[in-house]
Design a protein around this nucleic acid. Structure first.
Lengths: 250, 250
DNA sequence: CCAATAGTGTCTTTTAGACAGTATCGG
DNA sequence: CCGATACTGTCTAAAAGACACTATTGG
């Protein structure tokens, strides 16, 4: 045993990573929010080659001296681009090929993040016009993207829409405090269809992932609406069925 | 425009990947099958450092000269370890950190594959005892695994069990031709609970992803059972609800 | 005829879908 | 009082769950 350990030590002493050709490795983010009643994704303009001047998803290479792991690299990138610290962040998928980056064989770990548009301050980046929100309504307003970021964005959107059907995820797109009607609107925006109010509220109630903020109300020229928030430390809830279908109800 | 192109060309001419420190990149596979009425995962014994002699999930480094993309690298690895060519293969997730491999910062793209145990010939590897099926029943029979492969396997299992709840995936764990009862047993084995026969069959019928093999039957000392197979070119079907719950029915 | 498993039907309970009805604000 | 939106209740149709029943083989 001590012999094997010794042998392994010797192996590691002489091992040199630079003897092998390895791909480039980066982390990219699909950051979504709801703004102006639309689902929007964050894009940045590339300041360097390759694809200088083109829009793309925010991302960067892994810094092996400072990033402890992939999640840390994603969080760092998110902080650098948006100033936001602890939103909903989940790894989507990896992409990699010999042709997606002109610099050579490259891989990227794509994360998707959900944040509320009120926490975020896009000026943060330094050069203000190099970062923008881009609405996802009719697809053609999305500019051409660098690398393979267009198909990556498609996959991210698909995953988001899919998860919205059966999870409590959309709550992360809203500010900390919100009304049930606001939450319902988020579901409707992402899904692109109307949802029955009664069924929606039953579902949310049974999921039991929100708490009422006693005595806190959203006022207007109508009956006040109860404010809610996600329960502290609440994990994402998975419903056993899909979101109920379209309805004639407004 | 031609100016920008020129500038990009110049950039690429002088770009040298070896000026940067990048992580190691590999592909690992969680290959599942049903054997002896149990869910089993394929393990290989490491023949080299690090972790020489320890069991782990099959995998290997990306070969940037021969692998076109990640999927190709995964398929190649699968073929090398099992001789199987075209099973169900899907990317699970990426893992990466500075500590998971003693050789340095490393990342791995984990795929999971479903194959039928009858297509596969483990002798293929060359050194026969260095590869084995390991049953997933009570967890403690799984040996300690190299790297972070134990938690990776946990994630793969969780994903598999989860997907079985609402997709047609388990059909890939069976040979090409099978009876509905055999398919039901696969669901039961993976889920670890019984499923109602009537509800199960209704579900499968409505999913409409199988075809009856006319005139082909499984015989025994009882009523013969109709053989089925997956429709050609059939994608995975997603049910709108979870698999129906436990029942007292045998 | 019997044991065994395949496959179908039926009844009951639960849930979704549609929509009406009531509540409470500002003006 | 009115318009607007929050919130709740009710009825009906559809689906799930439990389980019994029939069908067809070998021995």
């Amino acid at each position: 045993m001590s012999n094997a350990k010794q042998s392994e030590k010797e192996f590691l002493r002489t091992y040199n990573i630079h003897d092998y050709e390895v791909p480039l490795t980066s982390v990219d983010l699909a950051i979504f929010t709801i703004k102006d009643q639309l689902l929007q994704v964050l894009l940045v303009k590339r300041g360097d080659h390759p694809f200088k001047g083109k829009w793309c998803l925010p991302g960067g290479f892994i810094d092996i001296h400072h990033d402890a792991d992939l999640d840390a690299a994603a969080l760092r990138t998110l902080r650098e681009k948006t100033g936001v610290d602890a939103p909903y962040l989940e790894q989507l998928q990896g992409f990699g090929s010999g042709v997606r980056d002109p610099r050579g064989w490259s891989t990227t770990f794509v994360y998707f993040a959900l944040i509320s548009s009120d926490q975020i301050d896009l000026i943060h980046g330094g050069n203000a016009d190099a970062v923008r929100w881009c609405a996802i309504d009719d697809q053609n307003v999305i500019p051409p993207l660098a690398f393979d970021h267009k198909p990556i964005l498609e996959v991210a959107l698909q995953r988001l829409r899919n998860k919205v059907e059966y999870t409590s995820l959309p709550a992360h797109l809203l500010p900390e405090e919100f009304t049930l009607t606001e939450l319902q609107q988020v579901y409707q925006i992402v899904l692109g269809r109307l949802v029955d109010k009664s069924a929606f509220r039953k579902r949310i109630r049974e999921g039991d992932f929100l708490e009422e903020l006693e005595g806190k109300w959203r006022y207007g020229s109508n009956r006040p609406a109860q404010l809610h928030r996600l329960r502290k430390g609440q994990d994402t809830v998975y419903f056993s069925r899909l979101m109920s279908g379209e309805t004639s109800a407004k």
